[in-house]
Structures are given as structure tokens and as C-alpha cells.
Amino acid sequence: MSVLEDLIRAIELWLRIAKEQVPLVDPSLDPVLLVPGIGGSILEAVDEAGNKERVWVRILAADHECREKLWAQFDASTGKTISVDEKIRITVPEDRYGLYAIDTLDPDLIIGDDSVYYYHDMIVQMIKWGYQEGKTLFGFGYDFRQSNRLSETLDKFSNKLESVYTASGGKKINLITHSMGGLLVKCFMSLHGDVFEKYVKSWVAIAAPFQGAPGYINSGLLNGMSFVEGWQSKFFISKWTMQQLLIECPSIYELLASSTYHWEDTPLLQIWKESLDDNGKKSAILESYEPDEAIKMIQKALSKHEIISDGNHIPLPLNEDILIWAKETQDILSQAKLPKSVKFYNIYGIDYDTAHTVCMFWG
């Protein structure tokens, strides 16, 4: 066999393999809209000149850029969290029909990239099943710092439902939400039930903390929150930097323990405290606080808390205005009713006992 024949056969083999790898498109599938949870959307900072910079998630200068661009303060008059740098506004990219923002959160990361995967594996698998971006597969990213009932976010979600419905030829939508994304959708359903019923066929909620995630949130407000474990965490935003961000995020307060829910196991905030006996001998005592008491303890711990931004000392205690706002959000969530025409699937684990208990049960 000549070299030329070998080359032709090699090209034919390559073309056959390439053809086999072309994803199958199944036009009969109903459209799917993926909604992420907290920290699950790429965020971009836009300056006054219109220049964009990805600030969540990134490796290089991640901690610095978070402090400069994402640190924010809550405006009780609007219910919105505004970046400390008023010249900056935060946006979510809409590329790939909303999927880009919720796929791989740091597209530039090469080594250890699975640590920043969000819906990536699900998107890849669904494309193998025949879903097509822009026809039957879509994403909804959002600024997860904001309240789950912020009208601006819910208006965008309404527009997304309508656009997905239209792009798929008038087919009703299957929603898949993860974690806090379930609260956002539940808020929308409660406040815009007619729109929800018009466009949604089914809803799959994965690990949705419908009654709060008290352990995780208590820890986050007191100590910060880490989204990446292991050596990769050294390159990302520190827990301390995250704590300063979380204190002014209404979405976090909306994940505190529901005050009206009858807990099978009451979530407790447990704190080790130093104690001295009459002889001056030190010992450690573990104190436990139920949800209402836990909030008071967190308020006390953060009463003199502040951050320094651009040389300015900014007081940052636990925000009582956000507590009031979050209570109103929980009241709205408690009144949500699922339309009879919509199928609902609540997927959660029940055997993993952890101090970061999350309550998934709806009613």
C-alpha cells in the first residue's frame, strides 16, 4: 500500500470519527431551562466606559477583584444590593442562550477545571441525548447577591420563559433548578403564578433549601464561605472576603431557618466559649442556640464589624433591614402554590448528617 493510500485511508477514518461525534439533535424533545444556585453564575463588572471584566469566578487577582467589584451594600428602599464602587454595575453574560454563564464558571482555567464546573457535565450529557442549545436547551444566570424576589431578576426570568417557549416552537418548558435557584423559581411562581403556569410543564428541584440552610448560612455569616476545596481554594476568593460580601446579600438572609416551619431536628448554632472557674482555671463550654437566638448571637458577634474600602471604614454589622426583607420573602415563599398542570419533582438526600443541614421539604 502506497503512502498516498495510507493517507487517504487515515483521512477517511478521521472524517468517519468526526461524523460520528456530531451530536444527535432530537427536535421532538421539550425545552429545558437550567437555573443555578448561589455562586453558580458568571458575574461581570462593567465600568462607566462599558468595559467588562469577569469578577466571578477567576483565578488571577480573584480576592482583590471581589473586594473591589463585588463588595456591596443593601439599599432598603429598593431591596437591591449595590456595589460599594458606585461606578461599577454587575451583569451576567447571555452568551449561548444563557448557558455560558452557568457552564464552566472560569472558562480560562485549564488545570483543575472541574473545580469550577457547574452545569457543565449535565449540559454535555444532555447534548448527547439530543438537546440543542438555543432550541431545546437554555440557561438562566443571575446576580446571586440579590434577593430571590428582586423584581428586576423576576422580570428577566419572565422574559426568559417567554423566549424559550417561542424558540422551541411553543412547547412548554421543563425547569431544572439547583439549590437556591429553587427559591428564586418558587418566588416567581408565588408572585407570577399565571406566567409560570402558561410556560412551565414540569419542575425538577435539586437540593432546594425550601425551609432554609441554617447551618451553612450561620457559618457563612460568622466565618465566610468556601466554594472550592483543596489546593484550588488557594487561588480563589478567601473565606474572609466572602464573609464581607455575604453580610450585605439578601439572598443569604433568605436562607436562614424558616421561623414557621416545624423542624424534626431543630437546627442549632453551636459555639465553643472559654470559661473560668473560681480558681481561674480555663475550660471550654459548648453553647447551643436555636434559630431565633442564633440570629441574636450573630448580631452580637458582628456588632462592631467593619470593612475598609478605598481607605474608608464602612460599618458592616448584621443588616437588620435585610432581616426584615428576608422575613417578607419567606412569607411570600410560604404562600406559593404549585399549579395543577405542572409536575413537580423534589430531589434531595436524607442520609447525610451534617452541621450544615439543609431543609428541602416544601410544605
Results as ranks from 00 to 15, higher is better:
Lys172Asn: 15
Gly220Arg: 07
His262Gly: 11
Ala205Met: 11
Gln132Trp: 04
Lys19Asn: 11
Tyr119Thr: 02
Leu33His: 10
Leu43Glu: 05
Asp113Lys: 15
Asn223Ser: 13
Ile350Lys: 08
Arg67Met: 05
Ala326Cys: 00
Asp26Asn: 09
Lys201Arg: 09
Gly112Arg: 05
Glu20Trp: 15
Lys19Ala: 14
Leu268Arg: 11
Ser226Trp: 09
Glu53Trp: 02
Val22Leu: 14
Tyr348Asp: 02
Gln335Arg: 13
Glu264Asp: 11
Lys281Arg: 03
Thr260Asn: 05
Asn279Cys: 10
Val55Trp: 01
Asp114Pro: 13
Gln270Thr: 15
Gln270Phe: 12
Lys128Thr: 07
Asn159Tyr: 15
Ala49Lys: 03
His120Phe: 00
Thr177Arg: 02
Ile271Arg: 14
Val228Ala: 05
Ser163Glu: 09
Ile322Met: 12
Tyr289Leu: 04
Tyr100Glu: 10
Leu70Asp: 09
Pro209His: 08
Asp113Cys: 15
Phe74Ser: 01
Asp155Arg: 03
Lys304Tyr: 14
Ile123Ala: 09
Gly40Leu: 08
Ser288Asn: 10
Gly40Ile: 02
Tyr118Gly: 10
Leu276Thr: 09
Ala257Lys: 03
Ile285Lys: 12
Leu333Gly: 03
Ser259Gln: 04
Ser77Asn: 05
Phe196Cys: 00
Gly311Tyr: 08
Phe157Ala: 05
Ile102Pro: 08
Leu333Thr: 00
Ala326Arg: 02
Gly230Leu: 07
Val342Gln: 06
Glu152Met: 08
Val200Gln: 10
Asp351Lys: 05
Asp155Ala: 15
Trp231Met: 12
Met180Cys: 15
Tyr118Leu: 01
Val22Pro: 06
Gln232Gly: 12
Thr78Met: 06
Thr177Ile: 02
Ile123Gly: 14
Asp143Ser: 04
Val22Cys: 07
Phe344Glu: 09
Asp278Glu: 01
Ser288Ile: 06
Asp85Pro: 05
Ser334Glu: 08
Cys249Lys: 06
Leu246Trp: 00
